[in-house]
Simulated scan of single mutants.
Amino acid sequence: MKIEAKLFLYGILFFFPVGLIYGLWSDGEPVGTVGIPLVGGLVGMIGGYFALLARRIDPRPEDDELGDIEQGAGNQGVFSPWSWWPLVIALAASIAFVALAVGWWLMAPATALGAIGLVGWVFEYSRGQHAH
């Protein structure tokens, strides 16, 4: 996680000076003058979280500068190859975006469909009382 922490923390060094320069060049235009430093704060919070997380977990092969590709081989997690639930969530998201253009009444079925899809995706492999 060290490379991710560095990537986001370097974003602070970019967004704060750019926000200052933007504020000076735009004569204090309020949206960009406030928004760009806020993005710097957001990437700082993400980078800080990744830095704290990097201290708690073991180093990964990506963190070793002299590491080989073979060090990352093996099981990377559990993925469901035949799951239809991401398609349901994508349909709900598309209906939600259509609601922005057509009408807010479409947001209710989009939210309901998204909740059903998310619950279905999370509990797809749960069978029985203590199944995982």
Rank of each mutant, 00 (worst) to 15 (best):
M1F: 15
I3Y: 09
Y10N: 01
G11W: 00
L13R: 01
F16T: 04
F16A: 06
G23D: 13
S26Q: 10
G28F: 09
E29Y: 11
V31F: 13
V34K: 13
I36W: 03
I36F: 06
P37V: 13
V43P: 01
G44F: 01
G47A: 03
G48S: 08
F50D: 10
A54K: 11
A54G: 14
R55A: 07
I57N: 11
D64N: 14
E65R: 03
I69T: 11
G72M: 13
A73T: 10
N75Q: 06
G77C: 06
V78Y: 05
V78G: 01
F79W: 12
S80L: 10
P81G: 13
P81A: 11
P81R: 08
S83L: 08
P86I: 06
V88C: 02
I89E: 05
A92I: 04
A92M: 07
A93C: 11
A93P: 05
I95D: 02
A96V: 00
A96S: 02
V98H: 01
A99D: 10
A101H: 06
V102I: 09
W105Q: 12
L106M: 12
M107I: 06
A108C: 03
A108K: 06
A110S: 07
L113R: 00
G114L: 08
G114V: 05
G114H: 02
V119Y: 03
G120P: 05
G120K: 08
W121M: 13
E124M: 10
G128K: 04
H130M: 03
H130K: 06
A131E: 11
